[in-house]
Design a protein around this nucleic acid. Structure first.
Length: 590
RNA sequence: GGGGUCGUAGUUAAGUUGGUUAUAACGCCGGCCUGUCACGCCGGAGGGCGCGAGUUCAAGUCUCGUCCGCUCCGCCA
């Protein structure tokens, strides 16, 4: 074989050959995307990461080259030398960015052959298990490559932004200490200390706070985090955070700095302008108006509280729910009377997922309602509801009556479901909102104690401190989430920097001084050595990339993702290990 | 842990009320073809229906179990 590759250098990417190169000799290397062999002339679409260009083998080019070109099959790896030529009249291909030109080949070297791939790279609906098993081939598909290119630009823009603003990137350990609060840890057994385990970090939370104690003042890191919890379409067991912490700052400073980051990222990656400052919503407002702490603000359809209108209603269900401390709320789907009875039954099943025992609906007419509950309501109630909902003929009102928790869950998700069904969402919209004033802790029925909403180092509102002993659920946290298009893309808080406040929080969480020492002793010690006021936040880089690429699954923005059972179909991880490895670690499988 | 859904040639799918040799398209292989670009034309190979039991004269088709993918609830400070 010749030594094309060692003596010659590639001059262009396939996708970057243009009409400006007309007449120029170029050297290209890439994969045979498709061949069209006419017996005489042979066309090959040559593909690399930048795109596709048509290369042409004419019989006149010579026996050797033409003969070799007959051997080309899909996905063969080629090196070619040839001359760029404007395509003959009427033979351009507008579907191709390089469709004005073609490259007439004078030299060819087949650098490598390829087995027939298990699936076509044009086909969009290949089952995911096949794609994941042959992920290296799946990643040849331009659509996924584009996602990863964008992800890289996102990370790059992030680094530039933080460097310009005086942040230092510091790496924190992956082999670290298991922390009891929060998600389940991935554990790594220690060989040297028998029976002991490291944990992979759920986030670098404590370490970045320690860096503030050390005086680094502004820290960031693009870092893998690990959580051993069940997966979702937007959750992987290992995922990437843009992790940030700052000293001598308040909420305002951090939120401004992060808004700047968002503006930079969207400008750099998508050339989109974000108007700042970003809107804000308190947690309580978000729940009351949208039923969720990650509301999708790309459309309206706000939840309306009807409890005061119907609490004394002749409709027993409403009256009973109200009397037992529940609420009656509703959303209005504009001009949705096209929904069939079957659709409505489907929606009832849908809200049942969130614990709702039923879903009442009312089609609004000129004078009355078409509704199973119409006959139970007085005329005054109907008109009051119509007014509260701003209902117009053709609208449908959906009611849920239950505990606040179930009502918000049901209607919050119903709102999303309806918006998709009724096409209310502009796919290009970017609806940011900060969510502020989260509760510091919530009572956990399963654990029979208060648990942190965010994490135990989150600072309470100082003016709420007196509630700590009397009504801990009412204490607000100095925490903030950033939500984009209904997805929580980041969250953080001002941290506790005084030891006595930290002790108070631990005690409400049911952690004794002794336990707290055992679990977080090193952080508590550090807090006693001149800790500056500090706070920070972390963004989910994967989720942000998902939104920016309009990916439906987090797997489409991760090169080598895991399945819902947390398995890697490519490498076959996790897998059994040999007895020797287990013995080294003093482990026994039970 | 639970709910839903899927599994039939390499791929994507079709397979009626269980009934001879399990279809199609694309891909693959061979032949022909000098302007195609989802090239075209002719011919061919390729699976026993995720796996395991069961019902039946007879099972992709019914039953049970099991595995895998996806999705949701719980979970994810």
């Amino acid at each position: 074989m010749s030594t094309f590759i060692t003596t010659e250098k590639r001059t262009h990417y396939c996708g970057s050959v243009s009409i400006a190169d007309d007449g120029r000799e170029v050297i290209l290397m890439g994969w045979a995307h498709r061949r069209r062999d006419h017996g005489g002339v042979i066309f090959v679409d040559l593909r690399d990461r930048e795109g596709i260009v048509q290369i042409v083998f004419n019989p006149e080019a010579g026996q050797t080259v033409h003969g070799e070109a007959h051997r080309i099959r899909n996905e063969y790896v080629l090196a070619v030398k040839g001359t760029v030529r404007k395509r003959p009249e009427g033979m351009t291909n507008p579907a191709l960015s390089t469709g004005q030109v073609e490259v007439v080949i004078s030299e060819l070297e087949i650098l490598n052959e390829s087995k027939t791939p298990p699936f076509s790279f044009d086909d969009e609906d290949i089952s995911e298990n096949i794609r994941l098993k042959y992920r290296y081939l799946d990643l040849r598909r331009p659509a996924i490559q584009q996602n990863l290119f964008l992800r890289s630009r996102l990370a790059s823009a992030t680094r530039h932004y933080f460097e310009e603003n005086g942040f230092i990137e510091v790496e924190t350990p992956f082999l670290t200490k298991s922390t009891p609060e929060g998600a389940r840890d991935y554990l790594v057994p220690s060989r040297i200390s028998k029976g002991m385990f490291y944990a992979l970090p759920q986030s670098p939370q404590i370490f970045k706070q320690l860096l503030m104690v050390s005086g680094f003042d502004r820290y960031y890191q693009i870092v893998k985090c690990f959580r051993d919890e069940d997966l979702r379409a937007d959750r992987q067991p290992e995922f990437t955070q843009i992790d940030v912490e700052m000293s001598f700052i308040s909420e305002e400073d951090i939120m401004r700095m992060m808004e700047g980051l968002m503006a930079r990222i969207f400008k750099a990656c998508l050339d989109r302008e974000i108007s700042l400052p970003l809107p804000r919503l308190t947690y309580a407002d978000a729940i009351n108006r949208y039923g969720k702490d990650n509301p999708d603000l790309r459309f309206g359809m706000e939840i309306v509280d009807l409890t005061s209108i119907v609490k004394n209603s002749g409709f027993k269900l409403f009256a009973d729910v109200s009397a037992s401390g529940g609420v009656i709320k509703a959303v209005r789907a504009e001009q949705a009377s096209g929904l069939s009875r079957k659709d409505l039954d489907g929606l009832t099943d849908f809200v049942a997922i969130y614990g709702a025992k039923g879903l009442a609906w009312a089609k609004v007419n000129e004078a009355d309602w078409t509704s199973p509950i119409f006959k139970f309501l007085q005329a005054g109630e109907v008109s009051a509801i119509n007014e509260a909902m701003a209902a117009k003929p053709g609208d449908i009102i959906f009611f849920v009556a239950d505990t606040p928790r179930i009502v918000h869950d049901s209607l919050g998700n119903l709102r999303l479901n309806l918006a998709k069904k009724l096409n209310l969402i502009d796919p290009d919209a970017l609806a940011f909102t900060w969510i502020t004033e989260f509760p510091l802790m919530e009572y956990s029925e399963s654990e029979k104690r208060y648990v942190s909403t965010h994490h135990p180092f989150t600072s309470p509102f100082l003016e709420d401190l007196s509630l700590m002993s009397t009504d801990p659920g009412k204490v607000r946290a100095r925490a903030y989430d950033l939500v984009l298009n209904g997805s929580e893309i980041g969250g953080g808080s001002i941290r506790i920097h005084q030891k006595d406040v930290q002790s108070q929080v631990f005690s409400v969480l049911g952690l004794s001084d002794e336990e707290a020492r055992l679990k977080f002793g090193f952080l508590l010690d550090a807090l006693e050595y001149g800790t500056p006021p500090h706070g920070g936040l972390a963004f989910g880089l994967d989720r942000l990339t998902m939104i920016m690429t309009k990916a439906e699954s987090i797997r489409d923005v991760i090169a080598f993702p895991k399945t819902q059972k947390a398995a890697c179909l490519l490498s076959d991880a996790p897998s059994r290990v040999g007895i020797e490895q287990l013995m080294d670690l003093s482990l026994k499988i039970v």
